[in-house]
Amino acid sequence: MMSLKEHLLVRRLRERDEQAFKEAVRLYQHKVYNLVYRMVGNREEAEDVAQEVFVTVLKSIDTFRGDSKFSTWLYRIAANHTKNRMKYLGRRAYNSTSELTDATEREAQGKSDTAGFKTQIAAPDAVLEGLQMEQLVQEAIASLDEEHRVLVVLRDIESLSYEEIGAITGLNEGTVKSRLHRARMALKDYMAKRIEGD
């Protein structure tokens, strides 16, 4: 259920209050961007999709019934937009891992746009190993189809509850759990193959 703060925010959004919209963007832009980025694996696409999510929020706020949290509704829009974009990019034979090497190199040079999550740098080797692992995990995520990818991102990266994931995806808890297990096993097989192959 929505908190009082969310209620007030939604009410002001329905009145098309620009300050409320700015507040919503300030509160949720990073969460939405991270969700989209982890699904598409490309910064430019992630930014474009995340912006479309907020455009949809402004356009469709009157259709939000308030029977779930505002953030759940927002995630649902983000997941749907991202799946649609992935289908579109898939038709154009887009390779979402194409940017991963560049991203990793930028991060290794200290130009990461990650904020608030700076880790203690123990040693260059440890950093490189961490970045390689991150790249490998992102590649593994990209190897999943969009239905499985969204579940992994929502549960294992965003740490949402099964109830919230059900509300976002429209799946019941049992289906979410079984599909998530399949997705994790596929990720595990991908990782094992890559690690053993290297």
């Binding site: 832009q29 991270n34 995340a50 608030g116 994790r184 595990k188 990782m191």
Partner: peptide, 25 residues
């Protein structure tokens, strides 16, 4: 391997939206 994989997912960096995100939007 399963444990390491799922553990690595939760350890991924949280990507922040670009600084100009709000203005562009």
């Amino acid at each position: 391997t399963f444990e390491r994989t799922v553990g690595a997912l939760s350890g991924l960096h949280k990507m922040a939206a670009p600084a100009e995100f709000s203005d562009d939007l």
